[in-house]
């Protein structure tokens, strides 16, 4: 694996996300405001999904963007888009919170709940201002909807509950290998489905930086 190369990958790029990162590195607060406007709704949804608590989710949002501000120089564009980097940070912060709360609000998911969850995802109805985000979200939802319920379940337990594959196997009372396969096949399928489709937001989008 390549080493992170702080600062070395921030040459001008047609995508305005990299320009935003450059401005963050130069301590431009408006750039953080713009990044926040773009991704806060997803970060909040993620934090809420993980912690199940709006107060905790709010703290996670602030902590995550604070970390983005402090670590902008460590962003490595070869490792994925800015959004993915922001969400990865937010997931870690939210799982930290979850562990600190020492809660384990989990039971074995059943199929009905699975179907219900999928339907809920499919008809997310919060009005979205950001056209790019809407488009990308529907791509990811579409890819997720193509997985089998058990693949989705294993992926969700790993991602949103921070469980290891051994813990998932124990919780679902399934062999370790089965869980390993479900996650692997599920992620590979999503990758195939999303390959070449995910894009970076470009300059001049309607969600252009708001100056605070």
């Amino acid at each position: 694996m390549k080493d992170p190369r702080p600062g070395s990958n921030l040459q001008p790029d047609p995508s305005d996300e990299l320009a935003l990162i450059e401005r963050l590195v130069a301590r431009d607060q408006a750039a953080l405001g713009a990044l926040y406007d773009r991704y806060a709704s997803v970060v909040y949804a993620l934090a809420f999904k993980i912690t199940g608590n709006s107060g905790e989710a709010e703290d996670v949002v602030v902590d995550s963007f604070w970390q983005v501000w402090q670590q902008a120089g460590r962003y490595d564009r070869t490792r994925g888009p800015v959004g993915a980097w922001v969400f990865t940070i937010a997931r870690s912060r939210a799982l930290d919170r979850l562990r600190a709360l020492r809660r384990s609000p989990l039971v074995e998911p059943d199929e009905q709940a699975e179907a219900e969850a999928a339907r809920r995802v499919a008809e997310s109805d919060s009005p979205e201002q950001n056209a790019w985000l809407v488009e990308q979200s529907s791509l990811v939802r579409g890819a997720l909807a193509e997985l089998t319920p058990v693949q989705r379940e294993a992926i969700e337990l790993a991602f949103y509950h921070g469980l290891s594959h051994a813990e998932i196997a124990e919780r679902l009372n399934q062999p370790l290998g089965t869980i390993k396969t479900r996650i692997r096949l599920g992620l590979m399928r999503m990758r195939e489905r999303l390959k070449g489709q995910l894009t970076r937001p470009k300059r001049g989008r309607p969600d252009a930086p708001s100056v605070e």
Partner: peptide, 13 residues
């Protein structure tokens, strides 16, 4: 990257 983008599928408030 695919895993990191999973939150895009969540319903948003």
């Amino acid at each position: 990257e695919v895993a990191a983008l999973l939150p895009l599928a969540l319903p948003r408030a």
